[in-house]
């Protein structure tokens, strides 16, 4: 068994297992905190409910018009969207190469993967620049924020070049980075997606029950 094969198979499985164990421990830790009880009677209009609030809250991220913060900075929102598409495809790639390499013989698919992951890599660079150049971003950034972003951007770079599944050093680096990424993620800010369903669930539940979610917008009349 050569090192390339080990990196693409066994190493990934070990890394995934470590990640799964750490995530389970993390979820156990989070769930050991009691959820605050809400005793108050429902407020707001009859059409607003806890369930609607939760669904709206979860779907919020797919509705850039719903929040002023995404509405007003649509370019940043687009960056966010393509960056996360890139993450999804780069992860998917780490499964396709070892388990379904035949799919990567479809040239359209290869091009599509390369465009999206490559775009994510460019966005990663833009995000690094923004984090360094923007005073507010610098003030709130930690070494973990910088490292996670650089790690992902470099990973995108190697993933883009690895899509054609030609083997070699670049692909080996991509898989080594993927393994490191899987092990590092639970300890870093990248694990935010683990918390997203929880924070959004509870916030949506409260806001739905209190009649704030779904948000209703009244925009200024066009002059």
């Amino acid at each position: 068994m050569d090192f390339q094969h080990f990196a693409e198979h066994r190493l990934q499985e070990i890394a995934l297992l470590i990640m799964a164990i750490v995530y389970i421990l993390r979820l156990r830790w989070l769930l050991k905190f009691k959820a605050g009880k809400e005793r108050q009677p429902k407020t707001g209009l009859p059409g607003t409910t806890m369930k609607k609030g939760i669904l709206y809250s979860w779907a919020n991220i797919f509705m850039p018009w719903a929040m002023e913060s995404t509405r007003a900075r649509f370019f940043i929102y687009l960056q966010f969207a393509f960056f996360h598409v890139g993450v999804t495809l780069a992860i998917l790639l780490s499964f396709l190469i070892p388990y379904a390499p035949g799919l990567l013989e479809i040239s359209v698919l290869v091009i599509a993967f390369q465009i999206f992951i490559g775009l994510a890599c460019v966005i990663g660079i833009l995000r690094i620049l923004r984090r360094i150049s923007n005073k507010y971003m610098r003030a709130i950034s930690t070494p973990d924020d910088y490292f996670s972003l650089i790690l992902l951007t470099v990973w995108f770079f190697f993933a883009t070049l690895s899509v054609p599944n030609n083997g070699g050093t670049i692909q080996l680096i991509y898989f080594l980075l993927t393994a490191f990424f899987l092990i590092y993620v639970p300890f870093s800010k990248i694990s935010h997606y683990l918390y997203y369903p929880f924070t959004r669930y509870y916030f949506g539940k409260t806001m739905g029950y209190r009649g704030t979610y779904p948000l209703k917008h009244i925009t200024p009349p066009q002059s």
Binding site: F33, M67, Y136, T142, Y195, T199
Partner: peptide
Amino acid sequence: KLNRQIVGSLVACVHCGNCTDCCHYV
């Protein structure tokens, strides 16, 4: 003082900076 909602909010911030311009103090 910690409950699940508060812990969630304490761990979930990704420092994206989207909240910055939403504050009247800023």
